[in-house]
Design a protein around this nucleic acid. Structure first.
Lengths: 139, 139
DNA sequence: ATAGATAGTGCAACAGAAGTGCATTATTCA
DNA sequence: TGAATAATGCACTTCTGTTGCACTATCTAT
């Protein structure tokens, strides 16, 4: 994607499009799998960890990316789809973690099914991670 | 529960019932909510962190407790039910994390619904955490 | 009952991820 | 241009999880 295009996307989300932010956005865009802070750090070895940390936090606050807890203990991030509203319960999609290639992807078209909770419990958010073997890792 | 009872339960799981292990088991038994290593550490302040760590790891290996990743970033543990087979996909229950009291409980009778994955994906394990308000935290 | 083997415990230290404070640099805008 | 605001980079801290090693308790076979 062209830099100018990313710039305008960031601006739409009220994120000032600095060089670093455009690079990070592009990196996330080019990778189907969700990336961790450490992934970013390894890829952008010229840049400081803190900068990347705060970049991703800014993205998260502004709804550019969403956090993924895939159970590996390391938080990962993926771009939100256009018009995605990660916070709304009905829009929560599930994530798939591949035990073989250690990559996590969004299955944006698979929503988390509604669960009937016991009396007195109210749901506000949900997280569903399926672990197994992904399409890229045939048996 | 009587010490003798816990002793025999541990023995049935091939865990040698040391004093520490009986205490830890009892602690987990008396608390409905899942506990983290830090919780154990705070409660058993006379005991060493490593001992508690290895105790809980032994329990986990032998199927006495199961690990819970509730998205807080801290792994928690809860006793397995009798005959529970946490590893089998069909037996996976979901967990509930309360945003108010910061406690995580097993909803053992709510199983994770089956999800149809895209072609090429195979499920081996799953983790579902619902977050919200628990019965003990009325509005 | 005792000696040797095995298992459990406690201390110290380390690793990785996440987060904060502060000084420096870049950008905006009046 | 110059003051205000935002972004970046460095150093440091905290928290959780983990391992190595020495010491102690427990078990088992003689």
């Amino acid at each position: 994607m062209k830099t100018a295009k990313i710039e305008s996307l960031l601006q739409k989300s009220n994120v000032r499009p600095t060089a670093m932010r455009i690079l990070v956005y592009n990196f996330l865009l080019e990778n189907e799998a969700a990336k961790s802070l450490t992934d970013l750090e390894n890829y952008f070895d010229k840049s400081d960890r803190t900068t990347l940390y705060r970049t991703i936090k800014t993205f998260e606050e502004k709804g550019v990316v969403h956090q993924i807890d895939d159970g590996t203990g390391t938080t990962k991030y993926a771009l939100c789809e256009q018009g995605c509203n990660c916070q709304i319960e009905t829009d929560l999609h599930l994530h798939f973690y591949c035990n073989i290639c250690d990559e996590t992807v969004c299955l944006t078209d698979r929503k988390i099914p509604h669960i009937n909770l016991p009396d007195g419990y109210t749901a506000e958010d949900a997280n569903l991670v399926i672990k197994g073997r992904c399409e890229k890792c045939p048996e």
